[in-house]
């Protein structure tokens, strides 16, 4: 997709984060366009997860600003950011393990409808909520597992559930943290297809180590090295970038 003409959805401006004396983010500037699939790559310890934590509100930035559709979100709490339309998944599978797959999704749908402190209605007859949860479950191809506990799903099913939960909140901007980590080749291919389908029309930002996934799925790629963006561009641009080659890609290929 040509996203160059699209409006900016997420703007990160000179973002800094230090833990004590340790500088993790050393002035990150990054702009994500509406509707693009943007990969964040970089060597271990580059600060990819920290950047996600800063955007999604887990940590407060030490400096700099983050804007979501022009509104400042840096410094807000995770739930406030989520309600403004940005949701993330997690590197480690992070589901409600003792609830059914269906209920995992339904909690997300409740969030989307702003149902938070409802103690006076039964949830069973709430058609809209239940139908929507079923539809989403179908979308992530888990409808046959609806009544199974999340902890009983296979690893890749749990990852698909993760994505379903992220979608359920109705977020327009989705951050996925290594959605194919630990998966077999087949599972990875399946997951890439799934992500491609379900993020249609939404803005996606993902951390990913698997370069074939990155080059196959994403419109633009940013390379994060030691708390700074080394380069941002399309797959071809990044592949041919000398600096990136030496800092990251070459090193990856040696493994």
């Amino acid at each position: 997709m040509d996203t160059a003409m699209q409006p900016d959805v997420l703007v990160i401006d000179d973002l800094q984060k230090h833990f004590g004396g340790l500088e993790i983010m050393r002035g990150v500037d990054l702009t994500i366009k509406q509707g693009e699939r943007h990969a964040l790559v970089g060597p271990n310890g580059a600060g990819k997860s920290t950047l996600f934590n800063l955007i999604s509100g887990e940590h407060r930035p030490s400096g700099g600003r983050i804007y979501l559709r022009g509104q400042r979100i840096s410094g807000l709490k995770p739930e406030q950011i989520s309600r403004r339309g940005l949701t993330r998944s997690f590197q480690i599978t992070n589901v409600f393990s003792r609830m059914s797959a269906f209920e995992n999704i339904r909690i997300g749908v409740m969030a989307r409808h702003g149902i938070r402190f409802n103690l006076y209605r039964r949830i069973k007859p709430m058609r809209a909520i239940n139908d929507e949860a079923h539809a989403l479950l179908q979308q992530v191809r888990l409808d046959h597992r609806a009544d199974n506990l999340a902890s009983d799903l296979t690893y890749s099913e749990q990852r698909a559930l993760e994505i379903g939960m992220t979608l359920a909140t109705g977020a327009e901007v989705i951050l996925l943290d290594e959605p194919t980590a630990g998966m077999s080749r087949d599972e990875t291919a399946y997951m890439v297809e799934l992500i491609r389908q379900v993020t249609e029309g939404k803005t996606l930002m993902m951390v990913e180590h698997d370069m074939s996934v990155v080059f196959g799925l994403c419109d633009r790629i940013s390379v994060l090295v030691y708390g700074r963006i080394l380069a941002t561009g399309g797959p071809e641009e990044i592949r041919s970038n000398q600096e990136v080659q030496s800092a990251y890609l070459g090193e990856e290929e040696e493994h």
Partner: peptide, 17 residues
């Protein structure tokens, strides 16, 4: 239902809004 989700994973419900 939210109470059960809270028991299972407090972090996640925060990130769901």
């Amino acid at each position: 239902r939210l109470t059960l989700a809270l028991r299972d994973n407090e972090q996640r419900i925060r990130f769901m809004g």
